[in-house]
Design a protein around this nucleic acid. Structure first.
Lengths: 197, 197
DNA sequence: GTCTATACGGGGATAGAC
DNA sequence: GTCTATCCCCGTATAGAC
């Protein structure tokens, strides 16, 4: 149930976003969306052609949100190394996982080019953005000259995505933090990373 | 359809292992298991109490296999750093994802303590095993003295799990390799990692 | 815009015959 | 051990009234 001063359409999208996050595409039924949004059958099929159409809107929103939050960290204050650290250390609901990365496991999403596109683009953008920051940090001498921006950027994004996996496996959000700490220790050095805490 | 000199029971388990890998627990139906294994309804419910019982056997097998393959790398020849590198670089079907890590996204698995246990134990074991090797490599001077074995071990496992996610997102197994290369570059240095290729 | 009625296949399982 | 019949509920929608 949702804030009633949202339109039914918006409540439907928001409920779908949550359900995709929690249960994935195959695990999310029209009925569950209706129940959570407080909208009826007729309302849902009036605003959307069906589950897939609704999922498309929800996925695009989830992807746009992720990008917005990341860009806030990337373009924040501080050196490149500090902004990367801020991004990696930002508070996340580790046990819930990543609302975009999660979709990657969903055959129903990956088999559909339209549903898949936002996922692909989001991670492509993220890796490129991080690589640019790493390059910048390297140029300014904050990071090791030997570091390869492209592969390290991919590794860092992987640490986050894998951190979610391990947090859920262990049942503890602290596991996510360990993954990030380990990566930062390797990237900027143990002591430096601790100073930025 | 399966090798017909396996018992129906074994074909059922193997088919379930594959389906759990490809489609997850919620996405796998008894009917699909029967079709793939070539066993009928009656046969399946004779050997197993139901989908959950079958999934338990399949998950335990998938977890045991992962452990066996990893241990082969961990206890292979070479220095600690070389064995870790061999493990990280081992050929994997990146686009298929990890058969164990995948289950972490499945509410149906995580909500059931018996199904969840093998997942939790597998990653706990993996992180501990890698941490021990890292510690060893550090003691022998192959790795930086400043490195923290526990958090770095978690980060390395996360890179693999996240590497699967990114490979699927990009549609290319090469993305997985980039994540591993980035991590190895940070761990043992760019040149050293290239030498071990 | 939203509601209710109706439809049809599939998920997940049980029962009993062979 | 395996087969077929049967069951009930749910997923996913369409149709038409209000």
């Amino acid at each position: 149930m949702y804030n009633s001063d949202m339109t039914a359409r918006d409540r439907l999208i928001d409920s779908t976003r949550e359900l995709l996050w929690e249960r994935g595409y195959v695990g999310t039924s029209p009925k569950a969306i209706q129940d959570r949004s407080g909208a009826g059958q007729g309302s849902m099929y009036h605003h959307f052609r069906g589950k897939r159409d609704l999922a498309l809107a929800a996925i695009e929103q989830n992807a746009a949100d992720l990008r917005t939050r990341a860009e806030a960290d990337f373009s924040g204050p501080g050196t490149a190394a500090e902004r990367i650290t801020a991004y990696l250390r930002r508070e996340r609901e580790a046990l819930r996982g990543c609302p975009v990365g999660r979709l990657t496991q969903d055959p129903g999403v990956m088999a559909d080019p339209d549903l898949r596109r936002p996922v692909e683009e989001t991670f492509g953008w993220l890796r490129a953005r991080l690589a640019a920051l790493l390059e910048q940090g390297r140029a300014h001498g904050e990071l090791a000259a030997s570091l390869d921006p492209q592969t390290v950027a991919t590794a860092l994004v992987a640490v986050l995505q894998g951190g979610y996996v391990l947090a859920r496996a262990s049942g503890s959000a602290d596991t996510y933090r360990q993954a990030v700490d380990g990566a930062l220790g390797l990237l900027v050095g143990e002591e430096y990373a601790n100073n930025l805490r």
